[in-house]
Amino acid sequence: MEKRELICISCPMGCPLTVELEGQEIVNITGYTCKRGEVYGRKEVTNPTRIVTSTVKVEGGKSDMVSVKTREDIPKDKISECVKALKGITVKAPVRIGDVILSNVAGTGVDIVATKEV
């Protein structure tokens, strides 16, 4: 049996959660003091995801960099691959909020979009 220790981020309380796993199966979650803690613990252990934000270079714009993000959350273990995929990308101005900078980043099916107008 595997035990995973987490801190719930649903509120400032920060309950220490312990999730017990049998292979892929969650057998027990303890330490939470409200329902949101249990939900967080379950998701964080089975399918943790994050929005990833970064920047890429721009040519001919009012600034040299444009901020970007994954349009939706991607699996946590893809974060590093996602950021590496952005290395070396240069886009040409004008860039608008929501413009696709890179599609299907790291095979996640999620696009990288601009978050600033440059």
Partner: peptide, 24 residues
């Protein structure tokens, strides 16, 4: 403009925006 991470606007717009998007 320099806070490119997300998490802005949950109360105002009920969605998670990055800093530049919130400013826009």
């Amino acid at each position: 403009n320099q806070c490119i991470h997300n998490g802005f606007g949950l109360h105002t717009f009920k969605e998670e925006l990055t800093g530049p998007e919130y400013a826009a």
